[in-house]
């Protein structure tokens, strides 16, 4: 018998475009983290896979499980639990991960732990260093823009969110106007670093006394600016447009986060989600956190900002210790949300 107890989670993530399976040891060490992107599937299958197709996940999932176990050098018998993202996300995509996780848990008599995708994004931080509580997370991605307060490790409370578009989505939409394909986050970030904030787009909700975000007014201002220039055949600097847009997004995110930190003092601020890879945002928060002496900034490493199963395993291990369990009736919940702090207070 093995004298050193190893807690091994086999985790699944299929909420959107990525198929991912990972093995995580003791909640914080990545033994394997297989992420099948569209590019890989394109190479493997020699055909274009539709951007949103659960078929893509079906084709990838068993291969990903095999690769994850092999890379981690473990077998099903070594596992402690199975963790899976059950929402939020695309229902058809989520169902593949949920179904695969249920099958593995049932076949190998392992406990099944349901994980909120956003808890996963936040817990990616744990794969670098332990999270200290109370903590705050700014989760920014293609589908989410949320400020989450965590008084304890298993408590997630929304204190602010977007009222319309998510930050990443705003990037994709103005990317469309600039002729940049989805996902536009990285190219726009790169363009922005070559330009200046010359257009001074509106900073939405900056003056409101809450922690909510809004990006649809910024999007309209951007579109109107480009549109007017087109009409009089004037060419605008793409670099300056990108820089002005990015500056407005970063200002709003940083401003609301600072305000939240003042009202909810925390030991750690975690920047997580796909848009956490944005250089402009990382630079800005790094600068701003200096005025909060008791708060450390944890930037999730670029390799773990996108969707991946390692982060689900990191959250899954914690939730398992707190007794989270699901059985064969577990279903995908595409609209899954954390509680609002205000709801609990009512």
């Amino acid at each position: 018998m093995n004298l050193v107890a190893r807690d091994l989670v086999l985790s699944f993530e299929t909420s959107c475009d990525e198929t991912s399976v990972a093995v995580i040891e003791n909640g914080n060490k990545i033994l394997s983290n297989i992420v099948a992107t569209q590019i890989k599937s394109h190479q493997r299958f020699g055909g274009v896979v539709p951007e949103v197709a659960s078929r893509h996940h079906i084709e990838q999932i068993t291969g990903c499980i095999e690769d994850a176990l092999r890379d981690a050098d473990v077998t099903y018998d070594d596992l402690t639990s199975v963790a899976v993202t059950y929402g939020p996300g695309l229902v058809g995509a989520l169902l593949i991960g949920v179904t695969a996780a249920k099958a593995v848990a049932w076949a190998h008599n392992l406990p099944l732990v349901p994980v909120n995708h956003l808890a996963g994004h936040i817990y990616a931080a744990r794969l670098v260093e332990p999270i200290e509580f109370p903590a705050m997370a700014l989760v920014v991605s293609g589908g989410h823009t949320e400020l989450v307060y965590m008084p304890e490790e298993d408590k997630f409370e929304i204190i602010g969110e977007t009222r319309d578009d998510a930050a990443g989505e705003a990037y994709d939409k103005i990317g469309r106007v600039l002729g940049i394909n989805y996902p536009a986050g990285k190219p726009v970030d790169e363009l922005a670093h070559q330009g200046k904030d010359t257009f001074k787009f509106p900073r939405a909700m900056d003056s409101d006394d809450n922690f909510d975000f809004s990006f649809s007014g910024l999007k309209s201002a951007f579109i109107n600016t480009v549109h007017h220039a087109d009409q009089i055949h004037e060419e605008l600097s793409r670099e300056d447009l990108a820089a002005s847009f990015q500056q407005a997004v970063v200002d709003v995110l940083a401003d609301k986060t600072q305000r939240a930190l003042k009202e909810f003092p925390v030991k750690q601020l975690i920047l997580a989600g796909g848009v956490a890879a944005n250089k402009g945002l990382r630079e800005r928060l790094t600068k701003e956190i200096a005025s909060f002496k008791d708060t450390k900034l944890e930037l999730v490493p670029l390799s773990l900002c996108g969707d991946n199963a390692a982060m689900i395993g990191a959250a899954g291990e914690m939730l398992y210790r707190h007794g989270a369990r699901a059985d064969a009736t577990l279903n995908a919940d595409p609209g899954l949300e954390f509680e609002w702090l205000a709801d609990e207070a009512k």
Binding site: P50, G89, L90, G142, D164, D165, D172, P334
Partner: peptide, 27 residues
């Protein structure tokens, strides 16, 4: 009502009848 672009479908069950708001641009 948040943009449904990313998840394609958002469901709202708290009205007189349910609302299913879909943005199929990504398709």
């Amino acid at each position: 009502i948040k943009s449904p672009t990313f998840t394609i479908i958002r469901e709202y069950q708290d009205g007189r009848i349910p609302l299913y708001h879909m943005d199929v641009y990504r398709l």
